[in-house]
């Protein structure tokens, strides 16, 4: 009996140590990527190529999701606000929810599951098929040549995608509230404008999306490069990218919100 308890505790200890070791490896890898980012800046064409694959190709999902999220917010917000006779505040509600939270967070979650997982698969497959090892043997650093450009493309794409998401969302809210339901056009915009603050809301939302971009891209490239070089290893790494980035996005969102809006 005591044997079982001891082995259970050992299991916990083992997993904890393994987790800490992994976190340490990931941190070192992140620093390595930053250290080797010089090539990406000198040859920006490498980053542009990845911007196409991770930024441009994510546009459709971001635009469509943003539109629908905004439309739902408009509808729900109208239903609730009209009970208090302040349905003109629907613009404020839609804009604030999007700019502060939903824009950065939902765009980051979508980005993690589409572009982030693609990044992991690409790097994982390049490792599994010896492409990274071959590059290394050809005296070309794979971290500088393959990993860093993808990382920076992710970091650059994320705030842009989050902004596009928010704008599409506000447009979706406008469509539902003003065009379909008939809330007054003027008060929709003016209430929104007088209540959304540039520094408190928009700048903070932008900073959030920058953090999310760094987190998702760093996790995606680490999982890809750290994956076991087999088909199974790559699939495990992809799942990990999506799960870890989603959790990190939500956790980071809480911490950043606490700092920004409560001044902790």
């Amino acid at each position: 009996m005591s044997k079982h308890i001891i082995s259970a505790i050992q299991g916990v200890g083992h997993r904890t140590l393994e987790g800490i070791r992994r976190l340490g490896r990931a941190t070192l890898y992140f620093l390595l990527v930053l250290w080797k980012s010089g090539t990406s800046l000198k040859r920006f064409g490498l980053v542009v190529r990845e911007l196409y694959y991770f930024g441009v190709l994510s546009l459709i999902i971001i635009v469509v999701s943003g539109l629908f999220v905004g439309m739902v917010l408009g509808l729900q917000g109208y239903e609730t606000l009209q009970k208090y006779g302040s349905e003109t505040a629907v613009g404020t509600m839609v804009a604030l929810s999007l700019v502060r939270e939903l824009g950065p967070v939902v765009a980051a979650l979508l980005f993690a599951s589409s572009a982030g997982s693609a990044m992991t698969v690409e790097i994982g497959l390049m490792k599994a098929t010896e492409q990274l090892a071959a590059m290394d043997m050809m005296a070309v650093d794979p971290v500088a040549r393959v990993v860093a450009p993808r990382f920076w493309a992710g970091v650059i794409s994320m705030p842009l995608l989050a902004a596009i998401f928010s704008v599409m969302g506000v447009f979706g809210g406008y469509l539902v509230a003003v065009v379909f339901i008939g809330v007054d056009d003027g008060s929709f915009w003016s209430q929104m404008q007088s209540n959304v603050d540039f520094r408190v809301d928009i700048l903070n939302g932008f900073i959030k999306s920058c953090f999310f971009g760094i987190a998702v891209s760093a996790i995606a490239v680490f999982e890809g490069h750290d994956s076991l070089p087999t088909a199974e290893g790559v699939s495990v790494a992809t799942t990990r990218t999506v799960v870890t980035s989603s959790l990190v996005i939500l956790g980071l969102d809480f911490i950043l919100t606490a700092f920004m809006f409560r001044g902790l």
């Binding site: 497959l125 390049m126 098929t129 010896e130 492409q131 090892a133 071959a134 590059m135 290394d136 043997m137 050809m138 005296a139 650093d141």
Partner: peptide, 19 residues
């Protein structure tokens, strides 16, 4: 090491071509 590797070539088991 990279300077040395420029003078080396390696053929990997599955080629390792950039797909």
């Amino acid at each position: 090491l990279y300077a040395m590797r420029r003078k080396m070539g390696k053929l990997f088991q599955f080629g390792g071509l950039f797909t």
